[in-house]
Design a protein around this nucleic acid. Structure first.
Lengths: 239, 239
DNA sequence: CGGACAATTGAAGCCGGTCAAAACTGGTGG
DNA sequence: CCACCAGTTTTGACCGGCTTCAATTGTCCG
């Protein structure tokens, strides 16, 4: 057995949400909607807001996050091109459970509630696709949840770097991947303080596992990072 | 504004999954399936297993959990009568992402993959219901996730007690609720060590917030527990 | 070139995990 | 009915990982 690691690779599937759907469905969804460019840091929707539609990411990168009463921000998930935002709230007929903001300048198409639900009620292809997507999201989320609950910060950081590398890789390219995120965002993904995050990055760097700039991280020893993430449990020989 | 607290009350909705569906749908789903009684502790399905259907809880209580390589168990969710198990994996066409075991003796009806997917493809009512349910689950899960990431053990325990009280309340009754769970399970829900859990329960007890037996916990001062959970942030007066 | 913001480093201190042992509980069989 | 046993709960002691607070350095842009 070689060194592979679980989950995280499931984003590839979520990106295909619209792929393979009947062209008329896709057209109805995307043609009518207005595409808007959100600048870095701009908020697309806020927790507690009433959904009026869904958002389709044409290009860019977006964070889903939740802010606690004490002002701490926890990032739930990073979305990339091809992914859909805000459909959970629409489907459940509730207010938004989280907020969404652009991490980099991003082109995003708005699809109104009427159009989206209309196509959904008409197209069993879309509804099947959504059900499958939600099932997948769930398993990814269960993993993140368990990691958060049972692993220490070092392991979580290593794990997240591996997932993020995948997420920041340019489609098709096999080049080295720059994970472009502020230290604060990286801390808020990992669920730790930024100071702790910085210190761990420093360690990883000294071990020659990663390279860093003030605004990005690059993995240079994937196996080493996997070892830090410590899947299989401490003692390799188990028993 | 009185003292209410977020989420957790969303189980009520998830229980209605089949309610209001066309009777023929319900019949097809439940009539054919075999009902089996799982004793306390019995495992219904295991993480990594290949799903062959879904399970409908007729009575009892079930935990969804995941076991880490080091043997730590993290409980993801507690299911009650009326809820469905194992559909995420079926929808996503993947293996089970988590395991399921009976917390108490439980009657559970198995619905085969063919039957379930058959009804699903035929009934837009069911598929809409499922989409809505998944959306709801998501917002609940986002809350749990954020709690885990940003709150200390004391706050998480208080929060979980409130959610569990709801979950263990007998339908209709307004009596005091006994949360019947082993200390270990309670610790695995909260994401902490059982020793830490015990010490916190002791504190809560000394503050007259709860009563305990060796196998259950009962909230006697709901407001007090809410205060420990510390939603709104430390300073009540905010600003 | 300054000025605001982000990243980094340092120093304390406590929360919570771990290990170990004692007390308790519920169930069983004599 | 009681004594016993296995498993669970509880308590104690220790210490290390992380958080917090504070101060310094670095970076990016107008």
């Amino acid at each position: 057995m070689s060194t592979q690691f679980p989950s995280g690779n499931f984003r590839l599937k979520t990106e295909q949400l619209f792929e393979g759907l009947p062209p008329e469905d896709i057209n109805q969804l995307l043609i009518g909607g207005a595409t808007h460019v959100y600048r870095k840091g701009e908020i697309i929707f806020r927790e507690g807001g009433i959904p009026t539609g869904v958002y389709h990411i044409k290009s860019g990168k977006v964070k889903k996050y939740k802010t606690t009463p004490t002002g701490v921000e926890q990032i739930i998930y990073i979305c990339s091109a091809g992914e859909l935002l805000g459909y959970h709230a629409l489907l459940s007929e509730e207010r938004y459970a989280d907020s969404t903001a652009a991490l980099v300048s991003s082109e995003i198409t708005f699809i109104s509630k009427e159009v989206f639900l209309g196509v959904l009620s008409r197209s069993s292809a879309l509804s099947n696709r959504l059900l499958k997507l939600l099932g997948l999201e769930f398993s990814g989320f269960v993993d993140s949840f368990t990691n958060l609950a049972t692993r220490n910060v070092r392991e979580r950081l290593a794990f997240n770097l591996l997932v993020l590398e995948d997420k920041f890789r340019e489609a098709g390219k096999t080049d080295a991947v720059d994970i472009v995120l502020s230290r604060t965002d990286l801390a808020n993904i990992t669920g730790t303080a930024k100071e702790t995050l910085v210190r761990l990055l420093k360690e990883f760097k000294q071990k020659n596992l990663i390279q860093t700039t003030s605004s990005s991280v690059r993995i240079i020893d994937r196996e080493g990072v996997i070892a830090e993430a410590n899947f299989m449990g401490k003692t390799p020989g188990k028993k």
